[in-house]
C-alpha cells in the first residue's frame, strides 16, 4: 500500500506536482494566513513527472480560478484536485491564460503601474520557461523575477 505522507482531507483542495523549490513561494501567494482550516504541506517527494515535488492540501477551502492562475505561473505542471467527501470530484490541470490581469506586480520602479492605481496586465510570452511582459512598460520578466500580488 502506498504510504500517505499527508493525511487525507474530507473536503478541500489538493495541489500536487509542485516543484519542491517553489512550494513555499506558492503557499505564500495563496495567503495562508487568511485560511481558517488546516493546511498540510510536504516537500521533496519523489515524482516521476517532475523529479522532486511538493504537495499542498488545504482543508475546507476550494481554490478560485484566479488562485489557480497564480499557481500556474510558478508550477505549470501542477494539478489541482477538488475533494468532496474524501473523493476527487474535479481535477484541474492548471493552465496559464494568455494574459494575466491583476495577478502580478510590475517591479519596474518607473512603470506607470507603480505610480498610479491601475490593474496590472501581463502578456504571457512563453509558459516553459515562464516569460511575461508588462502591458504598460513592456519589461519582460522570467519565473524567478515575477512578483505575484498578495490579496
Amino acid at each position: 500500500m502506498k504510504e500517505r505522507r499527508i493525511p487525507a482531507i474530507k473536503d478541500g483542495t489538493v495541489i500536487d506536482h509542485l516543484p519542491s523549490r517553489d512550494t513555499f513561494r506558492i503557499i505564500r501567494i495563496l495567503n495562508p494566513q487568511e485560511f481558517k482550516h488546516p493546511i498540510n504541506l510536504a516537500l521533496n517527494l519523489n515524482s516521476k513527472k517532475i523529479g522532486s515535488k511538493g504537495v499542498i492540501k488545504i482543508d475546507s477551502r476550494f481554490l478560485t480560478q484566479s488562485e489557480v492562475n497564480k499557481i500556474a505561473i510558478l508550477a505549470p505542471n501542477a494539478t489541482v484536485s477538488i475533494i468532496k467527501n474524501y473523493k476527487t470530484t474535479e481535477k484541474i490541470q492548471v493552465k496559464l491564460p494568455e494574459e494575466l490581469v491583476g495577478v502580478l506586480n510590475c517591479t519596474n520602479p518607473v512603470c506607470i503601474t507603480s505610480k498610479e492605481v491601475i490593474i496590472s496586465k501581463f502578456k504571457v510570452l512563453r509558459e516553459k520557461p515562464l516569460e511575461v511582459k508588462c502591458h504598460y512598460c513592456e519589461r519582460v520578466y522570467g519565473k524567478d523575477e515575477v512578483e505575484i500580488k498578495g490579496k
Binding site: N108, V110, C111, I112, T113, H135, Y136, C137, R139
Partner: peptide, 27 residues
C-alpha cells in the same frame, strides 16, 4: 513622459488617437 507605459495608459484613457512621443527608456 519619463514614466514608462504612460503612453499606453493614455491610449486606454482617450477616445481620440494618442501618439507616444517617448515614454522613459521604453518606446
Amino acid at each position: 513622459s519619463p514614466v514608462e507605459g504612460s503612453a499606453r495608459l493614455a491610449a486606454e484613457a482617450a477616445s481620440i488617437p494618442v501618439i507616444n512621443g517617448g515614454d522613459g527608456a521604453n518606446q
